[in-house]
Write a protein that binds this DNA or RNA. Structure first.
Lengths: 214, 214
DNA sequence: CGTGCATGTTACTTGCGGTAACACCAGTCT
DNA sequence: AGACTGGTGTTACCGCAAGTAACATGCACG
């Protein structure tokens, strides 16, 4: 039969692909996101055209690389979101999971979010194109789905859930990005502050003496 | 005197610089963010080296370009933030101002936020490096300052204000980005939904029948 | 007049993404 | 056996963009 043979070849190709992705991962983590295709190929012990045969173009390689990390992150987030606890605790657990992830592997994070960071004048960086948003988009959509499934938001709830999903993810992202850069407080404090924000402390806070409130 | 002469030269240089920036603006708005230095120089009626003399490198040109738009946007945001109204109205006005801005000039917005969007396989895009964050960072810091100045948040309020500033800006940004791409609702609805989120409706919402709430 | 000095040019280097053309090395068909 | 096929690998090249000399020009000052 030729199906068995094909399976063999496909397996071998898949294995190769995985090896290449791991090599790319190492290079990106070492050299930052402006890693060149040549460098990645060298790390994998081969030359450029093979990378192109496997991934089409640089965007394809990036997409495959990003998908691995994105999937892994989304899995842990789902786990935190599904933990048996009350809503506030779940929100805090999810925030903490995300922040712990970006804290543990900032290189990966910066690659997914700010693909051209740290580039020198002579660099062209990872031309990421429209591939920088997908992680945020996917997180936003997934969160929206969870919100819509579990919360009773009345009429228009589905749209509200989507807005909130993307909004909350954006909040988490921006705060995390800033926090990662400046480390102004502990992770737990950050989680608490963000949860407080989500819990309406902004609306509940009193005005400061001497002027109209924000 | 040579001070007057110097002033003359400096003025002329500044004028030239402004002209170049405007040319760059036109090209970026027309060709998207992957505009080449050659193209910008051609639009300005000159050649590359002059651009480099004025702006150092591409990042410098980008930074100058971004600063113009960022400053303008921040000015309108400050105005909305200072309007004489209660807190919720101000928040809504600020959100609406931001969203109106990105809606009115999506090209500028995409340039500031997603500088490599729309690039073709053969393009290298605008190598934006670490210059994609500043707008968000500045907005976050300014908002933090406003919050800290006007809200009584008790002890640790300053840090809380910074977290919230960056978090809210991130929420606005991500929701706006998603909304701009999908247009799932009107601007007013989006503003309302985000303000509701900030006003604690997430915490206040009831669980949906049949399962533990989010 | 020559001496600065900013402004402008052409022509170049370097380095990247991407591709074409060729070489090798399994197994397969006749 | 010997031609055929399909995957893996190579070298050598193209095109293009960033960035950089090195040289030319116009204009104020002594």
């Amino acid at each position: 039969m030729d199906t068995t043979q094909r399976t063999d070849q496909q397996r071998s190709a898949d294995r190769r692909r995985r090896e290449l992705l791991e090599a790319a991962d190492r290079v990106v983590l070492r050299d930052g996101p402006q890693a060149s295709m040549n460098a990645i190929a060298a790390e994998a012990g081969i030359t450029k055209p093979i990378l192109y045969r496997h991934f089409g173009d640089k965007g394809g390689l990036y997409a495959a690389l990003a998908k691995r990390h994105t999937d892994a992150l989304l899995d842990s987030l789902r786990a935190a979101l599904d933990a048996p606890a009350d809503r506030r605790e779940r929100v805090e657990a999810t925030l903490d999971t995300y922040l712990a992830a970006i804290e543990a592997r900032p290189q990966v994070y910066r690659f997914l979010m700010h693909p051209a960071e740290g580039s020198q004048p002579g660099d062209q960086g990872f031309d990421v194109g429209k591939h920088s948003a997908p992680l945020l988009r996917r997180m936003g959509e997934e969160l929206a789905q969870v919100i819509e499934e579990r919360l009773d938001l009345g009429p228009g709830g589905q749209q509200l859930a989507r807005v909130w999903g993307h909004g909350i993810v954006g909040m988490m992202h921006a705060a995390g990005d800033w926090w990662l850069g400046e480390r102004p407080c502990s992770r737990a404090e950050l989680v608490r502050s963000l949860a407080d924000l989500l819990w309406g402390r902004l609306a509940a806070a009193g005005d400061k003496i001497g002027g109209p409130g924000f």
